Structure formats: structure tokens, C-alpha cells
Measured scan of single mutants.
Amino acid sequence: MIFPGATVRVTNVDDTYYRFEGLVQRVSDGKAAVLFENGNWDKLVTFRLSELEAVK
């Protein structure tokens, strides 16, 4: 189960963010908004829950 605050990895091989890890900001309607941070940039991207896996 994916909840806000969880760290997730993108599993969709066709996505630009494949294998990126980010922090879930919100979850609704089968989608999750994931925040990616890297140095001087932040990006908030929405994914279907089926495209994400929780990082242990």
C-alpha cells in the first residue's frame, strides 16, 4: 500500500522517470503525486498507482 510520505520507485519502463525514486505527496483516484528532488530542482509528477512500487 502506498501512502503520503512513502518513498516510491517508478516501475513503468516506458516512462521518462523509470527507476527514479521520490516522495509521495498525495494519493487519490488511483493516482499518486510524487515529488522528485535533485540538487537545485524539484518536480511533482502524477503516476497511476500501478506504475509505482514502495521502496523498502
Rank of each mutant, 00 (worst) to 15 (best):
V45Y: 05
L52T: 00
S50P: 05
A32S: 01
G22N: 00
E53R: 06
D15S: 15
Q25T: 13
E21M: 09
T7V: 13
P4H: 05
G5V: 02
F47T: 00
Y18C: 03
V13S: 10
Q25G: 04
D15C: 11
E53D: 05
T16I: 14
T46Q: 08
A32N: 01
R26W: 15
E37M: 14
N38Q: 12
L49T: 06
N40L: 11
I2V: 06
V8Q: 00
G30N: 07
A6S: 10
F36G: 02
A6R: 06
V55I: 12
L23A: 06
L49S: 02
A33Y: 15
V8A: 03
K56D: 14
V27D: 00
Y18H: 06
P4L: 07
Y17D: 02
V27W: 03
F47C: 03
K56Y: 13
A54M: 13
L49D: 03
N38V: 13
E53M: 09
Y17V: 01
D42F: 15
V34H: 01
G39V: 09
V45G: 04
N12T: 08
T11W: 05
G5C: 07
Y18V: 02
T7M: 12
M1F: 11
F47R: 03
G22R: 00
V34T: 01
Q25V: 15
Y17N: 05
K31C: 11
R19K: 12
R19A: 12
A33T: 15
R26D: 13
F20Q: 13
V27S: 02
A32C: 07
Y18F: 10
V13P: 15
F47W: 01
L44M: 08
Q25P: 00
D14T: 11
F20E: 07
E51Q: 06
N40K: 12
S50H: 09
P4D: 04
G22L: 03
E21H: 09
R19S: 11
N12E: 05
F20V: 07
D42C: 15
G39E: 09
A6P: 01
M1W: 11
P4G: 04
D42P: 13
N40T: 12
Y18Q: 01
L52H: 01
I2S: 02
D14W: 10
T11N: 06
N40C: 11
S50G: 09
A54Q: 10
S50Q: 09
N12R: 11
I2P: 03
L35G: 03
A6V: 14
R48M: 13
K43G: 08
E51C: 05
D15H: 15
L49I: 10
F47P: 00
L52Y: 02
K31V: 13
V55M: 06
R19P: 06
E21C: 08
D15W: 03
K43S: 10
D14H: 14
V27I: 11
R19Y: 08
D42Q: 15
D14A: 11
E21F: 08
D14R: 10
V27F: 04
G39D: 10
V55W: 05
P4F: 05
K43I: 14
F3V: 13
D42R: 15
E53N: 04
K31M: 14
A54I: 15
G30M: 05
Q25D: 05
L23W: 07
A33H: 11
R26Q: 13
K56S: 13
F36N: 00
N40P: 13
A32G: 03
S28I: 10
K31G: 06
L23R: 11
G30D: 08
L44W: 06
V34Y: 01
A32M: 02
V34W: 02
D15A: 10
P4W: 05
G30Y: 05
E21W: 07
L35A: 07
N38I: 15
D29W: 07
T46S: 09
V10T: 02
W41A: 11
A32P: 01
R19M: 15
L49Y: 05
E37F: 13
R19N: 15
L35R: 10
V27R: 01
T7A: 08
A54F: 14
D14Y: 12
M1L: 13
L52M: 02
G22A: 03
E51D: 15
R48P: 14
R26F: 15
K56H: 13
A33W: 15
N12K: 13
G5L: 03
R48F: 14
F3Q: 10
E53K: 07
W41R: 09
F20L: 10
I2G: 02
V45E: 05
L44Q: 06
D29N: 13
E37S: 15
V10I: 07
Q25N: 04
V24E: 01
N38P: 08
E37C: 13
F20R: 13
V8I: 05
F20T: 06
V8F: 01
E51R: 02
T11A: 06
E53S: 06
D42K: 15
W41L: 11
L23H: 07
A6G: 07
